[in-house]
Amino acid sequence: MNISVRIGKAKFQNPVTVASGTFGHSEKYYHLREVKKLGALTPKTVTLKAREGNPPPRIAETPSGMLNAIGIENPGADEFIKTKLPALKKIGVPLIVSILGRTDEEFKMLAEKFNSVSGVSVLELNLSCPNLGKKVLVAQDPEATSRVVGAVKKVSKYPVVAKLSPNVTDIVPIAKAAEAAGADGLSLVNTFAGMLIDIKTREAVLGNVTGGVSGPAIRPMAVHMVYKTAKEVKIPIIAMGGIMTAEDALQYIIAGATMVAVGTANFINPRAPADVLDGIKAYMRKNKIGDIREIIGSLQTL
């Protein structure tokens, strides 16, 4: 059975990774035997300088999902490379490093920093975090998307993946802009902007007022976006949005995703990514599918 996949020149033994921000910089997960089986690991987004994150409360439960506004709390690129990367590399699974710059220049500087370290397979550009108080996200503007992807592609020695936002009228033009600018792949999708209100105090539940919704609640919309985009682009898609089980992941693969990322489910079931991988293999065995490529984008239409 062949379940290996590629993003640009980067090769992965299987199509299952974790979504950035859900694997944290938490070493408690690293020791899971299951983690070593995954196709790739995607640590939490790294910025040029350290960020302390948003004021609490930062998360809340929603129907079949969660609302969060963590605010990219991270130690900054230099500290990440010094203190976090060595332990992540030791796991022995390819790393998709998620980076976020406030400007094109910062994205470029981040890409250059990671050029000079070893153990990175792919750079994922977080163009779509909804929790940083920005009026317009890079991934809400095809031109800005094209500019940032182009700037990073010019300097990065790694394949580059653009992580896009679902908070757009039509994701396809933005996906195409990223592809045209040289992106090697797309990550679909980041969280849906949302909020919760405490009716007793008439205050927003989150300290940041608004946040991003993830989990099974967003899955049908995210599957639709992957389906729509996969028909229009040639580059591979890493799909995420409410994947709890292999059945959920297979929907994305059939819709056209090459890889799948388990996100919020990590918080509910730390073994979810390994369960998803095992389930995909079981599905392929049961349906006598020898190569994962036979199911990618295999949606049957009349």
Partner: peptide
């Protein structure tokens, strides 16, 4: 605090301390 992972991964349960944000779970 409300917690999601309780393993220090999500950074959702952070509170303000004199030493900066700290996770309640870890």
């Amino acid at each position: 605090e409300v917690m999601a992972c309780a393993l220090g991964a999500c950074l959702g349960c952070s509170i303000k301390t004199t030493q900066g944000f700290k996770t309640v779970c870890g």
